[in-house]
Amino acid sequence: MTTQMIDEQWQRFTFSERLARFAVYLCLVSAIVWSWQTVEVIPEFLYDAPSQFMDMFERMVPLDYTSYPISIHGAMIETLHIATLGTLFTLVLAIPLALLNAPNITPSKTLNWIAQFFLVSSRSVNSLVWALLFIALFGPGVLAGIMAIAIRSIGFVGKLLAEAIAEVNMGTIEALRATGASWGSILVKGYWPQVMPAFYSIVLFRWDINVRESAVLGLVGAGGIGVVLNDAQNLFEWQKVSMILVSIFVVVIVAEAVVIQIRNRLI
């Protein structure tokens, strides 16, 4: 390009950048057009949706308060147990994997990759699918739910924890090493104090997510409030369904508020 041309016309991106952007836009538009033309949607169902929604809401109100103490409360407690035990159990598996995945603790590239593989595969499979797999192992019930939550959370907790570990200030670690401290002491006295705030916030955040996730695990039979929801729905007890939905909503909001409070106090 000559200077004359540059003076005539200013362009923000180079030709290849524009070409790449254009290619991305083209791919996106063609993907949307392809999906739009081939997806099997019956438009009549969409026109019908508002009246169907009205019908559903009419069936849902008033809420069936009497069902709460009978069946919902116990199942709700069970859901909270699934979320909490799942989160605690995750730590047992996620902490070693995070240590293996952090390059400043495990210098071996191969071990980092192996840990990465486990973390990615844990995240790629949805918690409902994990629940189905664990139901095949443990039978329907709370245990399958706990395992599903635990295995599903490994990827999330392990990845974020490994990133937090990789970001620590190595000065303290070197100082500890210079005193001749053992491997365990370096981990507990050097890494842990620096990682601790991140650790607590990751765990609390995941617990919050797990409360939401464990509420639906019961739909495939893995215990908790989802089982009650599924039963109520199959029996067309819409007033009970709405009561369950409202209780899930309240529990999720309370869990989020609790997490925010603890984080503010702790970190």
Binding site: I42, F45, L46, D48, A49, Q52, F53, M56, L128, R212, E213, A215, V216, L219, L229, Q233, L245, I248, F249, V252, I253
Partner: peptide
């Protein structure tokens, strides 16, 4: 955000089949 996608899905399956 507060409801899990699966719960929203249940409601929409009722509404639009």
């Amino acid at each position: 955000r507060s409801f899990h996608p699966v719960i929203i899905a249940i409601l929409f399956v009722k509404a639009v089949g």
